[in-house]
Design a protein around this nucleic acid. Structure first.
Lengths: 192, 192, 192, 192
DNA sequence: AATGAATGAGTCTTCATTCAT
DNA sequence: CATGAATGAAGACTCATTCAT
């Protein structure tokens, strides 16, 4: 007799949207963006192809949706309690980063491969650049607090080391001496 | 009227093959593999579409061809005169690597993006993995010669640093403090 | 809580129906029938997509609804006071026709483009044909009253002239010497 | 052994292109542009869907191709021998126009319906407008030669009459008193 | 060795229509 | 009476690959 309430609709929308995002993320991460068809996303999400366009304007918009989620994730890394000493902070940052690499390697893989793809997606590239710069600023202020002589350069160095670690993990997988690298890096920045 | 000699034929073959490879590389690097069509490669190489299939079985085969060239390029880095001291060697390796980053950033971009693409052809992945392992072995023996305690780990560490440097250069471009990083890394491994 | 009375319902129905018709007409006229989506009509009418299907069986049915309105409009042209002389009548017909062209060019544009569209729904074509025939009959009796020798043919001639005028206005817009043509036609049929 | 000669290719290209144009024209004219799918054109032309895009950039480009042919057709009407008297000329123009209406009503139908379609195809509209203006200029010079007082207006009047005739033929078909109208118009402009 | 016409499967996207609420 | 989420068929267009010459 009566239409769904606005809240019901909102809930449905939110849920379906998330389904699409989840399905798309898994496929994009595993098969690559280009090799994933909208059909495949729809099938994985258990909905019709057409419905996807009810929620996203285009295939690229889905990607952006995913990216935004990732950005939110990344932002969490940067916050830590106020009473942390600089040393606590850097340890914390490193631990959280390792954590992400360990649990969300797929996410990181998707992010870095998108960032390095030569073609398309300039919007994503800009966003990625932004993320990196934010992160760098955090690192810089950290190294400054720690009394490093060249905090800026140190920030980039740490960034490079972590990016390289990620690249290694992705390309070599289990053959990469991840644990040892982790330990080594930790000792380098947070000598026990 | 006179048929081409076998040598002439071979020469022509080699030349055409190289034309295709060059055209494909430039397009793959600038536009991305997926966004580059065989037609475009043919046009850029100045030959017909059909002819490409006389030289390569498929689009993927062209990519492999490119990759092989890159591998050869990489191998050159690893050779140096016998009379080099270990310190000379590491300096030389670093210098050559920086050289490549500076002059062939496009090449490196293509290589790393292919290596990280989730959907990338497994054959390329294997080859890429191989390259990396070869490189690592070289690094290891170098660090061993230099008397490092954990030569293996140091090798991976250097690899990570250089990969990360590359990622930085690609994503941030001119905004990346490349020169300073270069100096810093040099001083770290080859203190003057 | 109190249910709406039947009359209220009827009123609402009529009003909503009209809203749909108005919205659809404007869009069809400006963007073309094919390029107008039901969604767009719903949005413009300020109602939901589904509701449209309570009032009309299909997109085509909306078009028919519009057409019917147009027919009614056209019928009004044909009525005039009984005490008009034949000359008054023909002047009146012409004036009203010009009036419509001036104020409702959009309407006329839609009508004629629908009438000429090859694929147009046969139901509309029949209706259109009907309209034209009715009009012709009116013209015929007018020219008969006026004592023309070939009233039938004159009717078709006038019809052609007015249709052609319309086509000119539509295709050339402001560049069409509408006012002069109007004067010329008036003088031809109603010499002052 | 050897590839097709350039001439062979050109011939093939020309022939296939024409096949597509013919098939598309027939379908566009009978079913309407929008209702005709590229698939249908391909099937009618006896070729694959993809091949169409080897010859035309888009569906609209096919339409433009057809239009250009039509324009060429129209241009022929405007040429007549130098020794014609003005009266000969106007008779000739009218006769040729009637000829086209009689033999190529489908063509005329397509042209006028495209010109009146509210949406899309501004390029076609411009071309159509151009055609009309060229025609008008011819008419004007003709009426000037014939000594009419208002050659410009007369040109538009004749244009309107012929457009209206066309509209009548299209909408009423066999029921339209075409022959009588033709005679009437001829007598009006070329009194015997 | 070389050409480019031809194929057809696959891609993203749109939209009239239905249906649960 | 009213909503808008959901469907699915259809459409324009792309492109790796094949093949006759």
């Amino acid at each position: 007799m009566s239409p769904r309430t606005k809240e019901q609709n909102k809930e449905i929308r939110e849920q379906t949207r998330q389904q699409i995002l989840d399905a798309a993320f898994e496929l994009f991460a595993n098969e690559g963006y280009t090799h994933t068809s909208i059909s495949a996303v729809a099938k994985k999400a258990g909905i019709s192809k057409g419905l996807i366009y009810h929620y996203f304007d285009s295939k690229e918009a889905i990607l952006e949706g995913i990216f935004n989620k990732l950005v939110e994730m990344g932002d969490e890394v940067l916050d830590f309690p106020e009473d942390f000493t600089p040393k606590d902070k850097i340890r914390n940052v490193l631990e959280q980063t390792f954590q992400i690499i360990e649990t969300d390697i797929g996410t990181m893989h998707l992010m870095i491969s998108l960032a390095l793809q030569p073609d398309t997606f300039s919007s994503l590239k800009d966003k990625n650049r932004e993320i990196r710069e934010t992160q760098m600023k955090q690192y810089v202020s950290l190294f400054r607090e720690l009394g490093y002589e060249q905090p800026e350069l140190e920030a980039y160095r740490l960034g490079a080391l972590l990016d390289g670690l990620l690249v290694g993990c992705i390309t070599l997988g289990d053959e990469y001496p991840y644990e040892q690298m982790k330990t080594k890096i930790m000792e380098e920045y947070v000598p026990s």
